[in-house]
Amino acid sequence: MTDRAIPDVLSPGRIGPLKLRNRTIKAATFEGRSDGALVTDALIDFHRAVAAGGVGMTTVAYCAVAPEGRTQYDQIWMRPAAVPGLRRLTDAVHAEGAAVSAQLGHAGPVANPRSNRMAALGPSRRFNQLGGRLTRAATEDDVERISRAHGTAAELAVESGFDAVEVHLGHNYFASSFLSPRINKRMDAYGGSLHNRAKVARAAGRAVRDAVGDRIAILAKFNMDDGVGGGFWLDEALQVARWIEADGTVDALELTVGSSLLNPMYLFKGRAPIRDFAAALPQPQRLGVRMLGHRFLREYPYRDAYLLEEARQFRAALDLPLILLGGITGRESMDLAMAEGFQFVAMARALLREPDFVNRVREESAARSLCVHCNKCMPTNFSGTRCVLA
């Protein structure tokens, strides 16, 4: 440790041009409240409640940069028709004193082609178990189009009143799938070496920076590792993070792990709610999840601040502001993050359980989330993401 001053998590913090009232961020979690791929009153109420509950910034997830980049049909995709609703949402959050970010990205092989009625795109052709169809290998034209679409989406975010955008470079979504040697089998300029595999992620950041400059803050959600054999791992992730920092395209990184395509519970830790997932699905998917779900939804022990050990290595290697995610459950884990040199903390499940949790942390020095990490909130994203115990 150095002699630097350790900030209070409830003190103001800065990400690029954006000053936040405190150092807590509502992490992006698909809300399941965007019927017709547009903002609804329910989505506005969801983020208004978190803003009123004290966070410095809330994150709207998931705003796809292209229609085929949605993980399912009703997700918002960034187009002029979405702007009026997004403006109502940002106005509502600002009225509560918080900032608001739009998570931008392309789901790539995680997209559901059956729901979207459009082919899912990835670095290489592979079977997409999410929609029961083959993922199509993206052409160079597709890659360039999707990179440009990130810039267009960021411009629309500015028009909609967002204070920040978060570029999704994790969870084996489009950019992250190119980083993964397990998924990316290409032999062209986007495959093989780490330099080539990193081009898509870096291009997305460059397109956003070129589009918005310093008008809003630019964050990126970045995988430290995929949690699968032969996937993107820590040593390569550190190098790509250094390249992104040198590019000057982002103002902060939110560090994450896992693959929505191959190992989703690696991010969440705790119990795998297989029966609840099955109950939320129609047949025959319901039967398939009940019989084989344990192969996909593996269980990992939960502990507070469970990504800290890996994240420390990024803190040592980078000067960029970093956001610690994963098991931030109270003042103790928040203070630990600040002491370890992270500038911000991000929470998801704790705020589903208690949207006003940050206000409670302000009032109670020993406040701890009521979340029990049952993960039964995860299957509710089919019907409106929520804590089933609240």
Rank of each mutant, 00 (worst) to 15 (best):
D3Q: 13
I6D: 02
I6F: 05
S11T: 12
G13T: 07
R14N: 12
L20E: 02
R21D: 06
T24S: 10
A28L: 09
A28K: 08
T29I: 15
F30W: 13
G32D: 08
S34P: 05
A37Q: 07
L38Q: 09
L38H: 12
T40A: 12
D41C: 10
R48K: 13
A49Q: 14
A51P: 00
A52M: 13
G53S: 06
G56F: 01
M57H: 04
V60F: 01
V60N: 03
A64M: 06
E68Q: 10
G69Y: 02
R70Q: 15
Q72A: 12
W77K: 03
R79A: 10
P80A: 10
V83R: 12
V83T: 13
L86T: 00
T90V: 02
D91F: 11
H94M: 10
E96P: 00
A98N: 08
V100K: 05
S101G: 00
Q103L: 07
G105F: 01
P109V: 00
V110S: 07
V110W: 08
P113N: 03
N116M: 13
N116K: 09
A119N: 11
A119Q: 15
A119S: 14
G122F: 06
G122S: 11
P123Y: 02
S124C: 08
S124Y: 15
Q129D: 13
G132P: 12
G132H: 11
A137T: 10
A138V: 04
T139K: 04
D142V: 00
V143L: 15
S147Q: 13
R148W: 05
R148L: 08
G151N: 01
G151R: 06
A157Y: 06
A157S: 10
S160G: 13
S160C: 03
D163R: 09
D163M: 04
H168L: 14
H171I: 05
F174P: 02
A175R: 06
A175W: 06
F178R: 01
N184R: 08
R186W: 15
M187A: 15
M187C: 10
G191V: 01
S193Q: 12
H195L: 08
N196S: 12
R202E: 08
G205Q: 09
G205C: 06
V212G: 11
V212D: 04
R215W: 08
I216G: 08
L219H: 04
F222Y: 14
N223F: 05
D226I: 05
D226C: 11
G229S: 15
G229D: 15
G230L: 13
G231I: 02
W233N: 12
L234Q: 13
E236G: 10
A237K: 04
W243R: 04
G248W: 11
A252V: 01
L255Y: 09
V257F: 04
L262F: 01
N263V: 06
Y266R: 09
G270T: 03
P273D: 14
D276L: 14
F277E: 00
A278H: 11
V289G: 05
E299H: 02
Y306S: 04
R312H: 08
F314R: 00
R315C: 01
A316S: 14
L318T: 02
P321K: 03
L322K: 07
I323R: 11
T329N: 12
G330P: 00
D335I: 02
A337Q: 00
A339F: 07
Q343N: 14
M347K: 03
L352M: 14
E354F: 11
P355A: 08
R368L: 08
T380R: 10
F382N: 11
F382L: 11
S383Q: 13
S383Y: 15
G384H: 06
G384L: 02
A390Y: 02
A390R: 14
